[in-house]
Design a protein around this nucleic acid. Sequence first.
DNA 1: GTGAAAGCGCTAACAG
DNA 2: CTGTTAGCGCTTTCAC
Lengths: 334, 334
Amino acid sequence: MKIYTIRDIAQQAGVSVTTVSRVLNGRPDVSKETQAKVRKVMAECHFVGNANARGLKQADQAIIAVIIRGRNNPFLAALAEEMLLCDPAGKAALVPEYIDEQDDEFLCALNLLHRRRVAGLIFVGSRIDSRCEVLADVNLPMVFATVSTLNTPMERAASVSMDDRKMACAAVGELLRRGHEHIAVFGGSRSGQDSLALRALGVQDAFLNAGVPFEEDRYVLTRFTLQDAYSAALNYFQRRPDTTAAFCMSDTAALGVMRALCDLNMRVPEDVSVMGVDGIEIGRYTTPRLSTIVQPVKEIARQSVQVLSDMMKNHSPARHVTVEAQVEMRESVL
Amino acid sequence: MKIYTIRDIAQQAGVSVTTVSRVLNGRPDVSKETQAKVRKVMAECHFVGNANARGLKQADQAIIAVIIRGRNNPFLAALAEEMLLCDPAGKAALVPEYIDEQDDEFLCALNLLHRRRVAGLIFVGSRIDSRCEVLADVNLPMVFATVSTLNTPMERAASVSMDDRKMACAAVGELLRRGHEHIAVFGGSRSGQDSLALRALGVQDAFLNAGVPFEEDRYVLTRFTLQDAYSAALNYFQRRPDTTAAFCMSDTAALGVMRALCDLNMRVPEDVSVMGVDGIEIGRYTTPRLSTIVQPVKEIARQSVQVLSDMMKNHSPARHVTVEAQVEMRESVL
DNA sequence: GTGAAAGCGCTAACAG
DNA sequence: CTGTTAGCGCTTTCAC
């Protein structure tokens, strides 16, 4: 099967390569007849054009890299998917780059910059820490989705996120209001200024508001995988069976925690209430259904793309958008 | 921030572009000193090389497209991820292309062929049906993962899969052996020759072997999403509460079915046993843990890449590899 | 409205 | 071991 080039098409249509190129790019300055003729030949040959050649020429092309850190994270995957749907008219302007949670998204960005000459960057599920220094002298439009860059070293980048601190406070506040005092928190590192650190702060706020002291040793450090959260919970609840509620900073972690409780013969929610964060789909189908903070995936996606477009097209300054999330109490909390 | 070209590097290192190119591609024919010098400059500039230019030149390059149909399918996602790990030494030879379950993977392949000049194709989670005709005169090495192309129109393509028919038979056979006679089957279209059709055949085999008649109206047609399976199950079990077991042709569907049963006040497994297929991770953490047919993800991934490599390098004929899967009875079956 | 020609950044002969 | 040179397929001035 032959792969045709623009030259083949030109020849078969009896026009020049320039004309074919123009048709390919939807330029207006081609006569209707010529256009029709060329299109016909292109269709017959399944011609699509070589992306490499095109990209080589149009180095200034508006291609946007979407870097998703953590492919096995259903929340981020859903968010990324939603973003790709914002891709205006299949212009293939958004190219996803899935990387491992262990990988360095900033190095990846730098790499992409050189490798693909991207003109804009969206980070999905990034942490903001010192690693970001490698982007110090990169002044491309960038936006961070799900984490605020306000008051961080990346402030010149835009961001779209929920108010992590407020929402964590609201969720834990509700737990406290329902009479839970011995609340375990399954979270990540509290240093830095990313969403996890903010959520930890929100937890503190909630305890402060309620006038209940937070016992430090109820903060359980864990990675947000089923396995890790499961192990962490198994370990924790054996030590502290007096706990009546768990606030987990991700739904995936919450699912692992729920299973651990079950294996310890503790019932959810009768013995221990469990909350997650994110609002992934499976949480609506587990038994019991998982209570959580539902992030507005579609809106975060839409706004992220919007903000970046503005920066690229109109040189708008970096905005920091806060979207509204929702504490949703389902069956896993009493 | 400047983006350097191979020429800039050459200049700064005081060598020719060819030499830089050679270093970039890890050719052996460059002296240690020159190499070190060039590498140093490259590192300083974060030089990575322009993928477009490279791809343009090496049209014959061994770049393999991995087409994953159904991003929200955790099983396929895990499989694809595993494949990418087979990528020999980060040669970036495997490029993933995630498409929607509704999209046409064959059209996508054709497109990729032109757009990126791929030299090989791996289909992950494809159905084999008449749409595949568009690839009729494409004779690139191709392999289908998780579905056998034996006795199908795509026979000239290689395939790596479990014996769907045998495994479905084994799973349902075990259900029958445990005394279940009224077994519902949540599956897909039975026309065609893809894995779903084969599994349906396997179900028939099991009933035949057991001498139990299979009641046609217990075959429930559903898409394999949580929502669809949930609705289908809700609907089905209200009509047929006499059912004591459900065989679902995907774990995701099984999870939806389990939740539906719960909402109908039927207990799993006490009232109804539930089985899935695939062996996705979350199935080990649900309550009850999901019984399933565990597909050997790593092996399917490894073999798929292997078989394709063989075809590309040694022009080996298309092989049809069958991998061993495992019926794993966990808590959801009595 | 259309075409000729000059590269985009890189690789691969082909010489030395 | 290293450099010179001719394109890969496409877009884009600049003429006509």
